[in-house]
Computed example of a mutant assay.
Amino acid sequence: MTIEITHTRREGTLVDGTSRGDGSAEILKLREYGRTLRQPFRWSRTLGCWYLPHSRDHAAYTPSLELLAQRLRDAGLDTTLTVDNADRRTFAEAEQDREERAEARADRFAGYADNAARHSEAAWKASHEISERFAFGQPIIRGHHSEPRALRDRARMDTSMRKSISEGDRAQHWADREKAAANYEQLRTNPGRTLRRLDTLRADLRAVEKWQRGESAKGHSRNPDDPELTIRHEELTEEIAHWEQVIKDAEAKGFKVWTRADFKRGDFVLHRGTWYEVLRVNPKSVTIPHISNGTGKSIVRTADDGYDGWTSTAPYDDVSGRRSADEMQPAAQAQAA
């Protein structure tokens, strides 16, 4: 049977046509295939084939796959390689899939947590029932006919209690993972995170556009005719549009996107629960007195500096409020009093 290695952005890197004992598993589990194959392939019962984790929605590094194919051929296995980086799903489709998978993980982890909690309680009850025999402090009488049973009871009690603790730890572990999976979408669409993500994506898009014009970007140049640049441009454009819509939806619900136009020197900015006087307005942040000045205070002015003029910056995506000096005066007086 021919082994088929295929890669598309839509499905990722898959290896089909292997059979148990043909020697392919040992090769696929290696980590020696260069830049993008530093982790081994895994077997998927759902897909019925081997797959490379995290290869979906990414371009393949073809030399690594060619090396893998050659290793399989050297082992006497007929192998083909097909790479189609242009076959991809839209960013909206990929994001929807990620959200659905997170929901499925949350449900699965909740089940694991419930099972572990039940086992923990059952083990605790078993230990408690045994311990009741020693409720009045009856010691183990050495040499008495009851000694073997008492020793067994003590061992069983210890084993049950250890199992209860272990299962309790497992229940907490899976409960934490359930919470993380359930909060995936909320964290993913957090406006502050989204704004930072958009800055990175826009910088990446500008670099791609420079490469397409034959210019250097990020310290190097690329072939303007490389089809990968066209695909990457499409991906970035889609993703930027998606996250821009997330910000628009957040603004419709009352979220404020702060910019340098909202501040001037002498204003106060609310940063992580403390009001700081604005020392300077920058393109992406405001300069404020060092944040250590804010320990135990709700308002920090320039005159409150206790760190020899050291300053910090508050990025606009981490700002949650603004007041003028006049608006802040009553609160500042109340704090001084």
Results as ranks from 00 to 15, higher is better:
Asp204Tyr: 02
Asp153Ala: 06
Val257Met: 03
Asp158His: 15
Val246Ser: 02
Arg142Asn: 13
Glu228Asp: 13
Ala203Met: 01
Arg232Asp: 04
Glu147Trp: 03
Asp262Leu: 03
Gly143His: 01
Ile231Ala: 01
Tyr184Leu: 07
Gln212Cys: 04
Thr194Met: 06
Arg206Asp: 06
Glu244Val: 00
Arg265Lys: 15
Glu209Ala: 08
Met161Leu: 13
Glu209Tyr: 08
Ser216His: 07
Gly254Cys: 06
Arg222Trp: 08
Asp176Ala: 15
Gly254Glu: 06
Phe263Leu: 09
Ala241Pro: 05
Lys256Phe: 05
Ser146Thr: 15
Leu201Met: 11
Leu205Gln: 01
Lys264His: 12
Lys248Asn: 10
Pro224Trp: 07
Asp176Arg: 11
Asp204Lys: 09
Thr259Ile: 01
His233Ser: 05
Lys248His: 08
Arg197Val: 00
Val269Leu: 05
Asp249Trp: 01
Glu178Gly: 08
Arg170Tyr: 06
Thr230Val: 14
Arg260Lys: 15
Ile165Ala: 14
Ala150Ser: 14
Ser221Cys: 09
Leu205Met: 12
Glu167Trp: 02
Ile141Gly: 03
Asp169Trp: 13
Asp267Tyr: 06
Gly192Gln: 09
Trp258Pro: 00
Asp225Ala: 10
Arg202Gln: 09
Glu239Asn: 05
His271Trp: 11
Asn190His: 12
Thr230Ala: 15
Arg260Asp: 14
Ala203Gln: 07
Asp225Gln: 14
His144Ser: 14
Thr237His: 02
Lys264Val: 13
Tyr184Ile: 04
Gln172Ile: 03
His233Ile: 00
Met161His: 13
Glu235Asp: 15
Glu147Cys: 06
Ser146Asn: 06
Asp199Ser: 09
Ser164Pro: 02
Lys264Leu: 05
Gln245Arg: 11
Thr200Gln: 14
Asp169Ser: 13
Leu229Ile: 04
Met157Trp: 10
Arg196Ala: 13
Lys218Asn: 10
Pro191Met: 05
Val208Asn: 00
Ala261Trp: 00
Glu239Gln: 11
Ile140Lys: 11
Arg193Phe: 08
Val269His: 01
Lys218Met: 03
Arg202Trp: 06
Arg188Ala: 12
Leu187Thr: 12
Phe263Gln: 05
Arg265Gln: 13
Gly254Asp: 04
Trp258Ser: 00
Phe263Ser: 07
Ser221Thr: 10
Ile231Phe: 06
Arg222Glu: 11
Lys253Pro: 00
Pro191Asp: 05
Thr237Tyr: 00
